[in-house]
Design a protein around this nucleic acid. Sequence first.
DNA 1: TCTGGGGTCCTAGGACCC
DNA 2: TCTGGGGTCCTAGGACCC
Length: 412
Amino acid sequence: MGQIIMHIDVNSAFLSWTAAYEKQMGIDRDIRTVPSVIGGNEQSRHGIVLAKSTTAKKFKIQTGMSLMEARQLCPNLLVVPPNYRVYVRASKAMREYLMSFTPDVQVFSIDECFLRFTDLKREEAVELAYKIKDTIKEKFGYTVNVGISDNKLLAKQAGDLEKPDKCHTMFPDEIKEKLWVLPVEDLFMVGRRTKPKLNRWGIYTIGELANSDYYLISTQLKSHGRMIYNYAWGRDCSTFKTGEPIKSVGNSSTLKFNVCDHETAHVMLLSLTEMTAWRLREANMNCRVVSVGIKDKDFGYAAKQRKLDFFTDCTRDIYINICILFDELWDGKPIRQLGVHVSDLESSNIKQINIFQDELSKKNEILDKAVDKIRSKFGDESVIRGVFANTELSPLLGGYPDDEYPGMSSIL
DNA sequence: TCTGGGGTCCTAGGACCC
DNA sequence: TCTGGGGTCCTAGGACCC
C-alpha cells in the first residue's frame, strides 16, 4: 500500500467560476450551456480567449486565440470579461476544502492541486476521488476532474484523459493501455517547440517516445529530453512540495497605446513596480535581482536584469534600478508591453544590515509599510502617487496580490 | 485595433579567480 | 609562442507550464 496521489483540476476554471458566481449573484443565465468564452478587453489590447465553454470548443475555439479569430469561428459567441478576484477567492475556497481530506496539498496553479494519501488502497482511492469530485460540484457549483495514481505525473496525465466531471486512474500497470496510445504532444512538458522535433524523428505517440532511441533524445534535447523520455515511462521522481517559498515575482502589462517617450514609460514602470514590490512585501521576501522587459510594437522582446549589492523590498530602490535598466535597454521603438520582475529572493525575516542603504531609503521603507497597510484596509487605489492623479494612467498595473480583498462580498 | 500575464527551469557564453 | 583547466558568478534568452 504505497502512496496515492490525486490531481484535482477545475474544468474550464475561469468560465466555471464565473458561471458559479453569476448564479450566486442571481444572474439568470448559465454561460456554460452556450458558446461562450472568458476574454479580455479588446479596446485595451487584451483581446484573447482565457477560457472556453464546452460548446465553444466545438467551434474549434482555443485558449490563447484572439477574440477576433474566435468570433470568426463562432459569430454568436458570448464574450464575458474576467474577474480575477472571484478566481482568487474560488481557488482559495477549493484549496481549503481539499485540506479537509489531507494536509498534504500541493498547489500547482490557480486551478490545479495535488493531494497525497499514504494509507489508501486503490479501490478506496477511487471511491474517495468520486466523493471529492461530487461534493465540490454540490458545495461550490462547478465540476472538476480527478486523476489518480502513485506519482504526480501520472495523476496529472490521468486527470487529462476525458473531461469534464470525471475521475480516472493511471497506475503504472495501465501506462501501455492509457498513456502510450496518446499523441506525444499530450505528454506533460511536450510543447509547441518539442512536438515538431519529435515528429521529425518519427515519434508521434507517447509510446513511440518511450520506445525511441534514448541516446538521440538525450543528446538532442539534453536534460529536457531525458525528462520527457522518463515521463513517457511514467517515471517522475519529483518530490511532493507543500508551501514552497516563491522564487520570483513580477508584473507586466500590455499598454492601452504604444509608448514612445521615456517619461510615459517611466510612469508605467512606476505603476508596475508598485504592484510588484507590494506583492514582494506581502510574500515577506526581499529581492536582489531586478529585471525590466520590453515588448515592442512588432512583438520583439528584450529584457535586462541586474544583481544589486543588497536585498530590498523597497519600491523606491527597485524603481530607481528599473529605470536605469530601461534607459540602457530601450532602443526607441514604440513599446507595446512593459514588465518588471524581481528574483533571487530571500525571506525578509533574515534582513541583513544594508550598508548601502541611505537615509532616504530608510524613510521610504517606512512609507511603503504605511501605504501597504492603507491599501490592504481600504483598497488598491486608496493611496496613489501624485503622478497618477488626474491622468488616465492606472496607478497599479498588472496582476493581483493573492490575499484577501477588502470590501468584497462573500462569494463561493 | 490579430496576438495576456503569472511563473519555473535550463543552457550558453563571458568575466574573473586560482 | 600558440594557446592549461577547473570553478563560480553573472546575464541573456528560450522552452515549458497554467
